[in-house]
Design a protein around this nucleic acid. Structure first.
Lengths: 193, 193
DNA sequence: TTGACAAACTAACAGTGTTAGCATTATTGT
DNA sequence: ACAATAATGCTAACACTGTTAGTTTGTCAA
């Protein structure tokens, strides 16, 4: 029964909805198929494998995150912009944890993934760093540092690794961002010297 | 045939070996059982579930990491100690990536896990922070920041997320650590005021 | 209208964790 | 030393997972 006008995009969208509502760990092709009123095997007319679908969802997630960041930093400069960038990142991780997890598990090993998603990941940060007087090399390093801080913080909080002490998590978060801003300013001085 | 003196510890050790050599993703109870010359179902005489085994391995990994850190910081102070701590962390993640992944996937949601592993995770960092003149509250926040930086950096490098630019990864790493040290010194000044 | 392609189907395979029920071995108490 | 008990193994099975092959069916173009 070649019936529904079921497109590849429909399948990806449906998978995203499912992951967001039911959680990434309990996602399966058979349930996805069932939700689309289809048998699991039929999915293979639209996708090559589970991994490919997974990767596609990862691209979606990254572009969503990137968009949120670009919106957040619009019209802002330097420390203001850094904070806005970090906030957008933090909120995304908190509000859409299951989708965020998909980004993490996206294996960037293939050159494919790096080229397709790499730019979106890096772009907003590089724009913000553009407001600081830094060498290109410094910017590339600092972008890695920023992403490490943000990703590390979000995933540890998500995993429950901050529950040893009953102190405010957002306070810790603000301290982390302040640390990065300090590093930025310090790097600027070094660039001059 | 109740034959081998097969203990729970043997099973865990065997699982750890397997994960380190074959990788976490290709680990299965049936292969583990086969390596122990046992059927998969027999494993359930020693462990309650796959999850429980997983958690147990997580505890092992955390204690290993903690030991490495304690050794590394012995006799060192302040910035020296921070660098040694970070280096031990970084090396562990790089040299034993599969075991490190187990830590990440350890869900700390249960109070059980927090109490059993939480102390080991936090202890070495708190010792190092003890060399700085900080309030207890500051230390607790800064410990979170440190772990975020380290974890974020390691897992992004491991996932291949740093391949956009062909610049040295260890240079970025050193910059991240320098950033944390800056934050420490800055926090000290704030504590005085 | 017919031919071709796309999209669905069924059936099956190999793999996963897990449980139930049974057999054997080892340990322990008398 | 012997019987009772607990521990440790087994087989068979269940309910899942992703995935492939081969077949049918609907749709659109020549």
């Amino acid at each position: 029964m070649a019936r529904q006008g079921l497109t590849r995009a429909d399948i990806i969208n449906s998978a995203i909805e499912m992951i967001e509502s039911e959680g990434l760990h309990s996602f399966s092709l058979r349930e996805l198929a069932s939700r689309l009123h289809i048998k699991a095997a039929s999915l293979y007319n639209h996708i090559r494998s589970s991994d490919e679908l997974h990767t596609e969802i990862g691209y979606y997630a990254i572009s969503e995150l990137s968009k949120a960041q670009l919106t957040a930093i619009a019209g802002k400069q330097r420390a203001e912009a850094v904070k806005a960038l970090a906030d957008a990142y933090y909120r995304f991780g908190k509000e859409r944890p299951e989708i965020y997890k998909v980004i993490l598990s996206l294996p960037m090993v293939k050159n494919d993934a790096i080229h397709k998603a790499g730019f979106d990941i890096v772009e907003p940060i590089m724009i913000v760093l553009g407001g600081y007087k830094l060498t290109e090399e410094q910017k590339k390093h600092l972008q890695r540092v920023f992403r490490s801080i943000m990703h590390g913080f979000i995933s540890q909080e998500e995993a429950g690794c901050f529950k040893q002490f009953p102190i405010d998590v957002e306070d810790s978060y603000r301290m982390a961002v302040r640390g990065f801003i300090l590093l930025l300013e310090n790097s600027e001085k070094e660039a001059k010297a």
